[in-house]
Design a protein around this nucleic acid. Sequence first.
DNA 1: AGTCATTCATTGGAGCTCCCAACGAATTTG
DNA 2: CAAATTCGTTGGGAGCTCCAATGAATGACT
Lengths: 186, 186
Amino acid sequence: MADTKTPRPGRTAARPAAQAPARNEARAAARTAAADPTPALDRIQALPSWLLNRASARGRRLVAEALARDGMRMPHHAVLSAVADLEPVAQAELGRTTGFDPKDMVGILNDLQGRDLVSRAPDPNDRRKNAITLTPEGRKRLTRLAKLGDEANEALLSALSPAERELFLALLQRVVEGEGDVVPGS
Amino acid sequence: MADTKTPRPGRTAARPAAQAPARNEARAAARTAAADPTPALDRIQALPSWLLNRASARGRRLVAEALARDGMRMPHHAVLSAVADLEPVAQAELGRTTGFDPKDMVGILNDLQGRDLVSRAPDPNDRRKNAITLTPEGRKRLTRLAKLGDEANEALLSALSPAERELFLALLQRVVEGEGDVVPGS
DNA sequence: AGTCATTCATTGGAGCTCCCAACGAATTTG
DNA sequence: CAAATTCGTTGGGAGCTCCAATGAATGACT
């Protein structure tokens, strides 16, 4: 890859020119010449995947900023919530329910345990497992985090009315589940 | 962080036990005791930011798989599209219109130039800039990529009817633009 | 004119998410 | 009892996003 590029070869000027004819004129000319009614850039930026990426990035940023005010990140909040529901729970099951990689789960729980928000004790019934439990501080912290997360999500959808939000979430849910192809039917 | 965790301390067994009382019973007990009608995990996984992340990840995966059949990745497609519209165009402007970091733009264009899909020549009018241009091969390749991308996006929204897709995209667009708070008015 | 701020392409580095592979310990299956 | 599986952990890598700094070149201002 290092030999394929042209790393600013000396900048010796003296070029054939006749290559940059006023930009906009070239663009319009190309459009009429190639009969390209919809510019490729506009098309790509209207693609569902593109819009979803941008919306997701905005949501992640908003949530990250909100949780950062409490010194936490999104995975901390998610795992803390899962522990609250499933405790005592093994790390592998936490990974399955939240979707985090076991490798990353180790780091997340290291953080949470380091702040005394969860306790990680060997499970007496299955000594391979760790029994993850919420500490009282963890429970209080989770309440705060849930509030911050809700506020961020409120801001994320602030452009939509309540009815529109409900509709949007319903559609979004079906997109997430995907598996479409066959008509929903029921 | 290395001293905060408990790295499986020997597994010497002999534990206080009385800590893992059959799992499900503990869960039900906690729910009645804490009067928690909505499990925290369910709540967090119904959050707009969570759903958007999952939908975005699904879209990214579908698009990546589709473009990979042509040996390309998403940024390649996006930049190639932008070049098609704006050529000849400088890297910095490409970065502004597509949203890619200037650093990443270097690598993307290195790839594209290495495959002779774009040409990168010094701009005679402004010797700081590179004039990025589409090669004939690049134009053909873009047609293929656009098709692959469209198919992937079709699959992404396959769970929605045409009317629902239109509605979903309209709502999604407004979420992306955000800046809500004030009513759109027009 | 010459100084100064800005822009451009590039390099370096970091963080996050996801995936794959391996390991020792422990458990389950046959 | 042997074999396969699970569990937590460590290691590495690929992609995407972001920030800081550099030298070259340009533009603006006095």
